[in-house]
């Protein structure tokens, strides 16, 4: 049986980018407002899953040749790394700090070390979710 998925594929090409963008927005919105790495990561995986549904694994893999298992590891490095930083500044483990920086175009922004930790969470969540889904979805 052959499905006709022209509509799904066409819509997905458009929608998935919106989801990606919103995920990034939610990710940066975290810390003081609702959002953050976990929910941002889940949304990103939702976009990826939509791509997997609309196309197939091979196509998506060719478009984005990412090893999600390594992604988990990189995420964990970010997460633990922000904690380890406190060894060099002799503050208690997992201490956080923040500062205000001036960016071109964007203007004055608050940056915290928690952001690096959150990036770790983001990568780990995307990596773990996609590893699970690929493992379940793949035929042997």
């Amino acid at each position: 049986m052959k499905y006709n998925d022209v509509i799904l594929q066409t819509v997905t090409k458009f929608i998935s980018f919106l989801i990606f963008l919103f995920a990034i927005y939610i990710f940066f919105n975290g810390h003081q407002e609702p959002g953050g790495g976990f929910i941002g990561g889940l949304m990103t995986s939702a976009a990826l899953v939509l791509l997997l549904l609309a196309f197939d694994m091979e196509t998506v893999r060719r478009a984005m040749p990412i090893d999600y298992k390594t992604m988990i590891a990189i995420g964990l490095v970010f997460g633990v790394g922000t904690g380890v930083g406190s060894f060099f500044f002799s503050t208690p483990f997992l201490s956080q700090t923040f500062g205000y920086f001036h960016f071109p175009v964007l203007g004055e922004l608050e940056l915290t070390t928690t952001l690096a930790f959150d990036l770790g969470v983001y990568l780990t969540v995307v990596g773990a979710t996609m590893t699970i889904i690929q493992t379940i979805g793949e035929d042997k």
Partner: peptide, 24 residues
Amino acid sequence: MSNWLILPVLIPLIAGIVALFFPK
């Protein structure tokens, strides 16, 4: 000094994470 107390947790954690990069 008191940061040393996290090391029994941190060392295996880091060891495990680093090992994820070269599984084969």
